[in-house]
Design a protein around this nucleic acid. Sequence first.
DNA 1: AGACTTTTAAATGTCAGACAAATAAAAAGT
DNA 2: ACTTTTTATTTGTCTGACATTTAAAAGTCT
Lengths: 243, 243
Amino acid sequence: MKIDPQNPADLSAQIAQAIRDAIVSGRLIVDERLPSESELADQFQVSRPTVREALKRLAAQSLIRTQRGATGGAFVNRLSFEDAYSQQITTSTLLLSMNAVNFDTACEARYALERACAVLSAQRRTADQLATMRAEIFRQAQPGLTDEAFCASDVAFHRALVDGAGNPVLSYQLAGAVEAMQPLMNMITFTARSREEIIALHSSIADALEAREAALVDTALVKLEAYTRQLARDVAARRRKTG
Amino acid sequence: MKIDPQNPADLSAQIAQAIRDAIVSGRLIVDERLPSESELADQFQVSRPTVREALKRLAAQSLIRTQRGATGGAFVNRLSFEDAYSQQITTSTLLLSMNAVNFDTACEARYALERACAVLSAQRRTADQLATMRAEIFRQAQPGLTDEAFCASDVAFHRALVDGAGNPVLSYQLAGAVEAMQPLMNMITFTARSREEIIALHSSIADALEAREAALVDTALVKLEAYTRQLARDVAARRRKTG
DNA sequence: AGACTTTTAAATGTCAGACAAATAAAAAGT
DNA sequence: ACTTTTTATTTGTCTGACATTTAAAAGTCT
C-alpha cells in the first residue's frame, strides 16, 4: 500500500483509497485489524491527523469500525445488508430530492422493480410475511391515522412484499427505491376516498399472494401504479389552479 | 444545528450527522457554502481537526466538496447520478464478496431487475442504444478476446439494455446489481463454446429489441439466466472433482 | 484610463506534540 | 484463588503552527 506524495489530491483521500483497494481486493479481510494510527502514519509518511481523516472517510462508508482501548484499533467491517440498506436509502433519497426527479420517473422505476419481485414473492412468500401485510392493511384502514403514519405503513407493506421474494440482494436493491420515494409520496395528501382505493388494491395484492397467483399480483400492482400516478397528477393540477 | 457533548459517540460523527440532517432536510441547499472550518469549530465548540474529520466523512459520501483558496470552503454537493452509481457499485460489490452471497441468489436478483427494465426498453430503446448493443456483440465474437474483456463487453451490453428503458432512476438502481456481479462472472471462465451460446442469446435480445417485442426479450433473458446458472453449476462441479 | 503585475488575505491541507479516556492485560495484594 | 491496582496501548481531542492555493485588492506601467 503506497501513495504518491506528488499527487495533487488530498493525502487523506489517497490513503483512504489505498486502504479501500486493499479491502475490496481482499488483501485485508473481514475483522482483520489495521495497523494503529501511529503505525499507519509512519508507513505512509504522514501525520496522525491525516491518517485519521482517511480512516473517518472509510468509517463513513461502513468499511471499517474502530474500538478504543488497549486491544482496540480499526477493524475491517463486514458490510451487513442493514448497513448497505441505510446507505442506499440516503443516497437514493438525496438523488431524488437534489435532482428534482420527475414523480412519474421515480414511480415507474419503483413499480418496475417491485413487479420483478412480486413474481418471486408469489412463489415463496411465507405465512409470516403475508400476516405482516394483512396487519399493515388493517392499520391503514384505521380512521384518524395521520398521513405520515399511513405512508409509513405503506412502506412496511411494500417492504414485506419485496422481502417475500426471499432474495436478500433483491431486498437490498429495492429498499432504496421504495423508501426514497416516501418523501415524494408524502406530498400526495391522501383523502379518505383515495385511501379506500389504495387499501382495496393492497388487499387484492395480499389475496393474490395468498393464492400464489403471480399474474394477479402483477395486475394489482399495475393498477396501483396507475392510481398512484393519477393521484399525483390530480395534486399537480390542483396546485396549478390554486397556486 | 447542535450536538450533545455528553453523547458517548464520537463528536466528529455527531457533527457529520447534524450537517447531514441539515442537507437531507433541505436546510442546506445545493451549492451553498458551509461556514469555514474555524467557524464550525466555534459553533460546535470543538477543535478544527474534529470538524475536519466530520467534513471528511461527508466528503466520502459525496455530500460535500471542498475547494481551497480565498473563496474556497465546503459546499453542498449536488449528488450526481454518476456519483450515486459508483457508490452503489462499491457497496454492492463489497456486500456480495463479504457476505459470500450465493451465485444463484445474485444471478436471480440481477435478471429479475433486468427483465423489469427490458419491458420498458422494448418500447423506448433508441437506435443509438441498439447500435451499442450490436457493437458489443461484434466485439464479443472476436477470437482472442480475453475473459476480462469479454466480461467487460458483457457489462456494457447489459448496461445499454438497461439504459434503453430511458429511466435514469432504474439505470442507477441496476448499475450496482450488474457491475457488482462482474467479479463473480469472471470466476466462470468461458470456453469458446459457451461464448458462442451467450453471443447467440445476446443477438436474439438485440433482435427482439429491434422489433420492439417485449415478450421475446423476456424469453431470451430467461434463457440467458438459465444458461448462466448452468455454467456456474458446471464450474462448481468441476471444482469439486479436481479440487 | 486600461492592462498587467504584485501583494495580501482567507481558506483548506498538513504537521508536531500533548493530554484525556477507554480498555485489556499484567502486576500486586488479600 | 480471587480481587484490586497498576500499566501500557490505542483511539479521541485539543492547541498552535506552517504550507499551499486561490481570488480579490493594491500597485505599477504604458
